[in-house]
Design a protein around this nucleic acid. Structure first.
Lengths: 229, 229
DNA sequence: GAGTGGTCTAGACCACTCG
DNA sequence: GAGTGGTCTAGACCACTCA
């Protein structure tokens, strides 16, 4: 009596081995249930899990087909800067550079989904690994959504960690790009002229309202992102 | 009679709203089943789906807890270069620069999981968007795993697309980084001195054997990666 | 209309692991 | 030992959608 996971694995092997090619129709659940000597519910569980992972597409009446992959999903795990540094065995330090209420520039205002003349909390700070600048953080926090941020100094805890404690389950969108360091990045990251930086931008929402927008710049020779699996 | 998806949504709302904070124990399945007027199996389905998505952790006897998020998963969809360019409304062109059997350099040999003096197929080619260089592809193909590649000229089809047709269900690992363009990148991507590039490296396996390793370089001002959801 | 997947219930047994 | 989740079966009804 196979479990749904065992069934899933058998089916996945048939897909990976090419026995069932992209576009092919899989046998209906009832038929597979008979083959495996189990119930249709169990086969259904197995096939749903394959569909969740994007290997097959299912439509009522039309049946289950192997997906033609023209795309590839890559999962990235983004950690708190401090953990990232400490887990690589390096010493972490944090430095607040500036903090104040300001009216964000046009581009940031758009990211914050702002209505007219919103003021936001603007924080610039640095994260060090073994004493060397690792990441420059340039952040805007929407005080309408997280008013408590207005009374936090961020002198000992980075906004990164603070926000995660206050707003644990927000959604986020990330952008990754390469650029030549601008003057602020050069100064704080201790870079020479024409040196490249790796930049992550993240916008975070809760309930459709923008919580924060942040730009994280790294010296290119000390930073890379690797996918998992 | 709520469906498991409806139950899932209610539970997720309680987590997102902070009613159940990270670390909190959720009620046992039997109790929730009573609350929702459904069976334990249905509640189980809902909670498993929350566990799949990383919102809760479940252990027998210990129960189900809201996960403390110190990390954030971001999903990236990597498309075939051609699709990426065409879907942005630009014209795609492809140019093969070189192709030959070679012994890969040390670093690539390690990536290919190579045993001693393996020869691999080395291909360099360019992808254009609206006539401008968009991506330089520098690829090594393991001929032990994909011998058919040895008799493909790659003059009209890029290795990218060819491999996807031949080896649809491999696994991959990606690395993203920023760098200053090297001489080859400067020449083919038409870049000035000291210009940054965004580099994607990908290694692909089938059944634990390395299929291919590729380095994809982009002019930084024309490329970024955005996560989905 | 008929074939396919989507889901539920009721009852059951098992597997793990905490205290 | 006992509480919790993991999973199966048997039967059922429904929802979609293709021909």
């Amino acid at each position: 009596m196979p479990t749904y996971k065992e069934i899933r694995n058998v089916l996945l092997d048939r897909i990976k081995s090419g026995e069932w090619r992209p576009g092919n129709l899989l046998p209906p659940e009832a038929e597979l249930a008979e083959e495996f000597g189990s119930t249709r519910v169990t086969v259904n569980r197995a096939m749903q899990s394959l569909a969740d992972d994007g290997f097959v597409e299912r439509r009522r009446k039309a049946g289950t087909r192997v997906v033609q992959r023209t795309e590839r999903d890559a999962l990235i795990r983004i950690r708190i800067v401090r953990d990232e540094i400490e887990q690589s065995g390096r010493r972490y330090n944090y430095l607040l550079i500036s903090r104040g209420r300001e009216r964000p520039p046009q581009r940031i205002q758009a990211e914050l989904g702002a209505s007219g003349d919103l003021e936001a909390l603007h924080i610039v700070c640095l994260h060090f690994a073994d004493g060397r600048p690792f990441q420059l953080e340039n952040r805007w926090i929407n005080l309408d959504v997280v008013p408590q941020a207005g009374s936090e100094s961020f002198e000992t805890i980075s906004p990164n960690e603070w926000l995660l404690q206050k707003v644990p389950y927000s959604n986020a969108e990330h952008t990754f790009r390469a650029a030549t360091a601008d003057s602020e990045e050069k100064e704080h990251l201790d870079l020479g002229p024409n040196e490249p930086v790796f930049v992550i931008e993240r916008t975070t929402w809760l309930d459709g309202r923008t919580v924060t927008h942040v730009m994280l710049s790294h010296p290119a020779d000390d930073f890379r992102i690797v996918t998992r699996d």
